[in-house]
Simulated assay, not measured.
Amino acid sequence: MTTYAKLPTLAGAEPAHVSFTDPDIWTAYGAQWNSGEQKTLQCCAVIDETHDVKTFVFRCADWRALSFEPGQFITVSPIIAGQSVSRCYTISSSPTRPFALSITVKRVPGGTVSNWLHDHLNAGDTLLASGPAGSFTPVGRPAAKLLYLSAGSGVTPLMSMTRASFDMAARLDIVFVHSARTPVDIIFHAELNRMQARMPGLRVLNICEGPGVDTQWAGPIGRLDLALLQERVPDFKEREVFTCGPQGYMDAIKSLLKQGNFDFRHYHQESFDIAVLDEAPLLEQAPVLDQQAGVFTVTLSRSGKTFSMPGNQTVLSAAKKAGAIVPSSCSQGVCGTCKTALLQGTVEMNHNGGIRQREIDKGLRLLCCSKPTSDLVIDL
């Protein structure tokens, strides 16, 4: 039987936003699930959100409750064409409901994993997953006024945050601005409207590039710009901003906020573009040898494979081209999926939080953001 710690109470603290952002709250809801730990998840339901977006609901195979922070992601590893392929997907459900979690996936044309999930994963099936991970979360950042900006499937981490604050009756002032191609492409449209009707501090604004087939659409048409933001959210500079969406969208948001003299100490964005990652092929293209960068020999200790690679390429890219099966996902040093022991040699590693210092001290490296500075022996 799963037992729960008593939810912490903070003496003298105003409960409205402290409870929502206190890290101890989320670990109290279920058992800790470390980012590098794989678990078997069972799919409980598949829900059609839009014509090309589905939500997959999972529970832990042993019925255990799991803790995570709103906005974090997991890494799923289905077997596709006989090969384990890993991709990161943000948890769209709330950690206040720890016995089930969901990911919401947009079908990407040519996307290896998104198409497999849409076409093959059904209720009753199991899937290996590791996580949760990621620092794109309001936890540890106390703020009573929030601005969520999303586009497309970037809505998922912000939906997790909104669901969590709704479930906890947190007295937060949230403005949720979502951009979509047309009204029928708005993910979670009906649910957000229902939450808005019942949560006094939540305001939802949907912006569509065009009306599509919806002749009754009365919302804004076009794209979010500074004029519209100033009109609909005049106090945006007083808010903690969380942004998620395609890279072009996030670049545009940063540009308009800069134009509006926003203080970027209160700005947070998801650090990788899930749609781009899902388009990655099973094997990456061959690296081009660059004599000026130096050429090094890499030995994979388990398989016995040996290959040469230039110093201006990542070890992950070269290892995959050599035929090594290396679990990977974000390719930007965030998720930690490609964490591997470096047995001999040295690398230059520039990560984005996907590995801890104690793991580095033990000899682990993230292959996706490591470039060789000597010959290497890797535990693969």
Rank of each mutant, 00 (worst) to 15 (best):
L121P: 03
C208Q: 08
L283C: 13
L367H: 06
Q285W: 02
A129C: 15
P327H: 12
C44V: 15
I25E: 10
Y249P: 05
P211S: 04
D278A: 02
V105Q: 02
W63E: 12
E279W: 01
M1D: 11
T40P: 09
M349F: 02
V108F: 07
F166G: 13
P98M: 08
E49S: 00
M199N: 13
S67L: 00
S153I: 05
D225W: 03
P246Y: 01
P138Y: 09
I186L: 06
R223T: 06
S271P: 03
V85S: 01
L7W: 03
K321Q: 10
S374T: 11
Q216C: 12
T2C: 08
A324T: 00
L342Y: 05
A280I: 03
N312P: 02
L146P: 01
P310H: 09
C43R: 04
V57G: 11
E14Y: 01
H189V: 00
T137Y: 13
A190D: 15
A151Y: 02
T156C: 11
E279S: 11
V46P: 07
L10N: 07
A318R: 03
G212D: 00
V85T: 09
A61W: 00
V276E: 13
P220Y: 01
N115G: 14
D214I: 06
A197H: 11
R87P: 08
V326C: 10
H178M: 03
C88T: 04
D375W: 08
I186V: 15
C60I: 06
L367V: 11
K258Y: 03
A170K: 09
A45K: 15
G323P: 09
